[in-house]
Design a protein around this nucleic acid. Structure first.
Lengths: 186, 186
DNA sequence: ATCGTTTGAGACAGTCTTGTTTCAAAACGA
DNA sequence: TCGTTTTGAAACAAGACTGTCTCAAACGAT
């Protein structure tokens, strides 16, 4: 049994995705490791949760970075904003599978610096949506903060659909983008 | 202190919306009642959860009833289906505020009859979406089961937006319907 | 084969939660 | 006012989870 700290963290995320209140013993079992070993890598449950939250927020930040939303918002051209939107949907997919647990787990956000980081990403996203509205890429008759919640909700629904096997992974990106931008009316 | 069973249940829902893992003591406190009194009304945590789940599913069923989705699906005309869709969005709003906790709480679904009831409502919804697709009211290039998850995710996002005070209650229905049917692209 | 490290199993105390019980005080209705 | 009912506070046992510790077995490199 390799007992890499990172591998344990990944297993913990998988487990907590399926069962958000899993005990340390259950997490250890999912990681194929004893409870003692789990505690050797993460001294406490809080330490584990904080690390998962940190990675999760980092992953979120990376999505926004990779999609280039700041640059697109600064440019303000419809082409750049549309490209960033597409890219956003693309990168969200990998995020929802890896760190989707953070979508509904606010328990990990006990640390102040984490809260700050979360607010930072929110602000980035909102600025991007506002720029897209101003450029006529997104509808201006919705608060930009609602668009953020809309995206969040879509990702929760997407994660659930994937978890239950109701949709195929290869369809996820298209369904997300189409639902997000165009809705489901014919 | 009035200690109506129903009032306690409502307070419990509010509390569990804010903190899904609240203890019985915390729930009792939120209801303005002692732990002993809480246990007088609900012998066990499981009994409380089951009742909340039951009411939640009942409320969901009522939404589908009030929106008349079965009749609309049976008729199959675009007019009836569109009207039912609008009605659905309208009734979802009151649901998300009252029983939204069930959206992300599957813990209450331990009882077999509850699971059966949940599956029943899912089947009704899916049949309705399929009929709407067939009639050209909803896009046919999405699995009807995805549309159900999409609606679920939107309600989760809506609940979160309301909880954080990011959108006004009076805007909720419009934002939900517009996002659901048309998306947020300009 | 040997030495040093890592691991798993188990025991342990401390804490929290649950559900029950008791008893006195408060609220209530006649 | 009096008697009944409801309530809150407290104590309690039982169980679960956490975090720590010990020790023997497994492992890996030399």
């Amino acid at each position: 049994m390799v007992a890499n700290r990172e591998q344990i963290a990944r297993a913990a995320i998988r487990r907590l995705n399926a069962d958000p209140v899993a005990s340390m013993a259950e997490i250890a079992e999912s990681a194929g490791v004893s409870r003692a070993t789990l505690h050797r890598h993460f001294a406490s449950r809080e330490e584990l949760m904080t690390e998962l939250g940190r990675e999760s927020v980092g992953s979120w930040r990376r999505v926004l970075d990779d999609a280039g939303i700041d640059e697109a918002a600064a440019l303000g051209t419809p082409e750049a904003l549309n490209a960033a939107l597409d890219s956003l949907c693309h990168h969200w997919i990998r995020d929802v599978e890896e760190y989707g647990f953070a979508l509904t787990e606010t328990a990990a956000y006990g640390q102040d610096d984490l809260l700050v980081a979360v607010e930072e990403q929110h602000a980035r996203e909102n600025a991007f949506y506002a720029a897209a509205q101003k450029a006529g890429v997104l509808r201006a008759d919705m608060p930009e903060v609602w668009i953020g919640h809309l995206a969040f909700g879509l990702l929760v629904g997407l994660r659930e659909a994937l978890r239950r096997g109701d949709i195929a992974v290869r369809d996820a990106e298209r369904l997300l983008r189409e639902s997000f931008l165009r809705g489901c009316a014919a």
